[in-house]
Simulated assay, not measured.
Amino acid sequence: MSSPRITEASLKQFVLDLGDKHPPITLGSADRTIHDPEAVKARFAGVIDYLARVELEVDRNVLELLTILPNVSEVDKIFYQDVWYDQEMAHGYLLDQLQADLGMETAEPFMTIPIRMKLLGALAHWEPIHDISRLLYYLTGASTERQAVLAYSSLTKELTRMGETAIAETIIQPIKKQEPGHFAFYKMSAEKMIQDEELKPWQIYVARLLRSKSFTMVGVDYVKQYQRHFGGVMKALSVDQEMEVYAKEIGRLEARLLWANEKGMEFPPYFLKALRESVELYEAQGSFDRPNPNKFVI
């Protein structure tokens, strides 16, 4: 039995319902009791800082979106402006407060828009390129949100094992519960483009090429320090022990939509490559030192 067709109207209704069902999480709703701050900090300082930074980078994310999609659709605008932005900022505030409670420095969001995005945005005024950019935006969003769900799930389990149930259940778990809705939006949006055959074969080819050359993990932003940090997050959450399983979890949607499961592909190879490179960088130079938040990035 085939799935119901995704329409602009059904997608818009999904977004409106998402906003109604999941209002931003307030700081006052969190129980910030921490039994052993030093133990939490020792194990997860880098993880919490990384997640807080990524959540607080939504201002830059919106600027990137408007850069690569100069003709952003009504539904996309409702999603990022009325739903996603406030939810993500609330996540960042919660995690930043957790950092303060642990005696850590607050997160330092990265604010540079890479040159490659500006170039893509300049070309995106031509509709065929705009459509390629839109598909890549949805695929990136889906991968990002799936990574977030897995990270928050692992962190919740580990904090619970440590007896830190208050922050696990009232900070990390509520954040995790909001991420699948974001993933679903990106997934449905990408599926609609493929379903409606909005891209010609040459556009799919270009999208594959761009994705293969430019893919990065969530929060890396083409900055080597952040790529190393991501490797540290993977090791702290033991993701490095099952990299192929993780790559499949975050890459199977893209394998299906962008690559049509070519030659039995379970996930695009650049997912596993990015994971391995991140871990190798961290193992070689393990640290979470912060780069300049306004660093020039190609």
Rank of each mutant, 00 (worst) to 15 (best):
A207T: 04
A184C: 11
A184Q: 14
Q195K: 10
L123I: 03
A168K: 11
L210P: 06
F183S: 01
P109Y: 04
G163E: 11
R208F: 07
E198F: 02
I172M: 07
I194W: 07
R228H: 01
L199F: 09
E127W: 09
L123Y: 03
Q225R: 12
A122E: 02
H125I: 14
A166L: 09
F110H: 11
A124V: 04
L150G: 00
E145H: 10
K177P: 00
I204L: 15
L155D: 05
K177S: 08
K224A: 13
Q195Y: 12
K200C: 00
G103N: 12
E198I: 14
T165I: 03
S133A: 15
I204V: 14
A124T: 05
S143T: 14
A190V: 06
A190E: 01
A100T: 01
A184D: 15
L210C: 04
E191V: 02
T112C: 05
L136W: 05
L102F: 08
A122H: 03
W202L: 11
P180T: 10
K157S: 12
F110T: 12
P128I: 05
Q195M: 14
A122W: 08
K176D: 08
Y152K: 10
L139Y: 06
A148V: 13
M117A: 10
K192Q: 14
A124M: 04
Q225V: 06
V218E: 06
I129C: 09
Y137T: 15
A124S: 15
P201Q: 15
Y152I: 13
K192D: 03
E127S: 06
R161C: 11
Q195N: 08
G219F: 05
T156Y: 14
S133E: 08
H130R: 10
I115P: 00
R208Q: 15
Y186P: 00
V206M: 14
T106Q: 12
T106Y: 01
K118D: 00
Y205T: 04
A148W: 05
L119P: 01
E197D: 06
V220R: 03
S133T: 07
I171S: 03
L119S: 01
P114M: 00
Q227H: 09
K157L: 11
F185D: 02
F185S: 02
T170K: 09
R228S: 02
V223M: 02
Y186D: 02
G121L: 08
V223N: 09
I129Q: 12
L102C: 07
E158D: 10
R146S: 13
E127L: 09
F215Q: 00
Y226C: 06
P114H: 00
T106R: 15
Q227T: 05
M217F: 07
K187T: 05
I204S: 04
E169Y: 08
L119K: 08
T112P: 09
I172D: 06
I171E: 06
I132F: 04
P128M: 05
L155K: 04
F110P: 07
L209C: 08
K224D: 14
H130F: 13
L102Y: 07
E145W: 09
T106S: 13
K200I: 11
W126V: 11
T160Y: 05
T165H: 13
M111F: 05
Q178E: 15
E164G: 12
V149P: 00
S212P: 00
I194F: 11
K187A: 02
A100I: 02
Y205H: 09
K177C: 07
R228E: 01
S212T: 14
L209Q: 12
A142F: 13
M117N: 11
